[in-house]
Amino acid sequence: MIQLAGLQRVFRTQDVETTALNNINLTINQGEFVAIMGPSGCGKSTLLAILGMLDSPTNGSYQFAAQEIAHFSEKQLANLRKASIGFVFQSFNLIDELTVFENVELPLQYQHISAAERKERVHAILQRVGIDHRADHLPQQLSGGQQQRVAVARALVINPKLILADEPTGNLDSKNGEEVMAMLRELNREGTTVIMVTHSEKEGNYADRLVKMLDGQITLDRANNLQSLNTHNSEVA
């Protein structure tokens, strides 16, 4: 579904040129659960932004569903993104001014879906993540775990081909964190492709495949056999 070839992303500030991603080659197939790991500043967030079409590569090719999109304009990217990608962020990024229901409804509004259908789909998805009794609350009135569930619901409501999760449990305690991870796992079993950025080994273990990065390059890319064992002695690079 996703094919990156020779991908490069360079940031230029007045005099300094920083290469955040260098010669990234990565293929992700439909239905995979990939964890991207690495220390701070290794480029994993930049990679996620490019995968999520929030940013464009400086060089190289990005094929999404067999379509070359590296050269797409911001508007084309926005149109493709709103129909196919759901985001889950570390800091939830719910809009404070909107209720739970309205937050989840928002992506559907941007897709110009009728009010009746929106209502139906939002209720269905809220039920699925078990937060429908809080539909009229504002985000600040919810706990962190509940907020992240709303964020997941918002990512899911468009029936995305791909879910991008950026440190989804970073701001949660371990119990809530496990719940969210289980939810992503289950989604993946139902067929949604999930790409997750994390620096927690424990979370990496939920994924089928591990991609490790360092200084803008992929240093390791392998299937994760340990995930079913669910133990701590994972591999060390």
Binding site: G52, K75, K82, F87, N93, L106
Partner: peptide, 16 residues
């Protein structure tokens, strides 16, 4: 800013 970022990530175009 956060709101703008989220809206954009969810598919809002610049003109929206």
């Amino acid at each position: 800013a956060k709101e703008v970022g989220v809206r954009k990530a969810l598919g809002a175009s610049k003109s929206q």
